[in-house]
């Protein structure tokens, strides 16, 4: 069962689903400490319960499979991930984002990184951080894979394959975070990846 410890990385629902659907999931889940909120956990449970048999390859299947993996991991004995309870519990479509904000407002000093998939939510949390002068960076989920790369736990081709998956499933939302990771590192994934991933890139 996940503890209530606060690790330096705070992750939202979509970030967790994004990494859970990559080929690096089995490695990533055991070697990185991270924290999420009870509200994000509830969103994961909703994804699992909302559609019993989503067709393979559909977005619903992607959400359900990713959510199941994350929940199993959160509930595993001695999980290196934690789940903190946010009170009062926010509701509504942006409850996950609100729960991160509430958590940061009370425990900002515990965190160094916030990872969020949605672009608007990232900007909104950056504003909160800037307004309060917290020393926290807000990034997309490719950063979690970058941690593996930076610590020589994976090689560049594996990093490229895992991140390009986010472009394939998330379109521009994924591209926005992945492209910047590639540029910053820098790594030329379009050279490294083979034709199998052509659909993620427009023809040159």
């Amino acid at each position: 069962m996940a503890s209530e410890a606060r690790y330096p990385i705070l992750a939202d629902t979509s970030s967790l689903i994004a990494v859970a659907n990559t080929a690096q999931w089995k490695l990533l889940k055991d070697v990185i400490h991270l924290t999420t909120t009870n509200v994000c956990k509830h969103e994961l449970q909703n994804h699992v319960n909302s559609n019993k048999y989503p067709p393979e390859g559909s977005r619903e299947h992607y959400l359900k499979q990713g959510s199941q993996r994350v929940l199993e991991h959160l509930d595993a004995d001695s999980s290196p991930w934690s789940c903190v309870t946010v009170v009062p519990r926010p509701h509504g479509p942006d409850a996950g984002e609100q729960s991160l904000k509430q958590e940061l407002s009370e425990h900002a000093s515990s965190y160094q990184i916030v990872t969020i998939l949605d672009s608007a939510a990232r900007r909104s949390i950056r504003r909160l951080i800037d307004d309060n002068g917290y020393d926290i960076d807000v990034v997309g989920p490719p950063y979690l894979l970058y941690i593996l790369l930076d610590n020589d736990l994976i090689e560049k081709p594996e990093f490229c394959e895992a991140t390009v998956r986010m472009i394939q499933t998330e379109g521009w939302t994924g591209y926005e975070v992945v492209k910047n990771a590639w540029t910053s590192i820098p790594v030329d994934c379009s050279e490294i990846l083979d034709d199998e991933y052509d659909d993620a890139f427009p023809p040159k």
Partner: peptide, 11 residues
């Protein structure tokens, strides 16, 4: 975020 010591995030 890349400037941080990412080894701190490992189990």
């Amino acid at each position: 975020a890349m400037e941080r010591d990412t080894s701190e995030f490992l189990t």
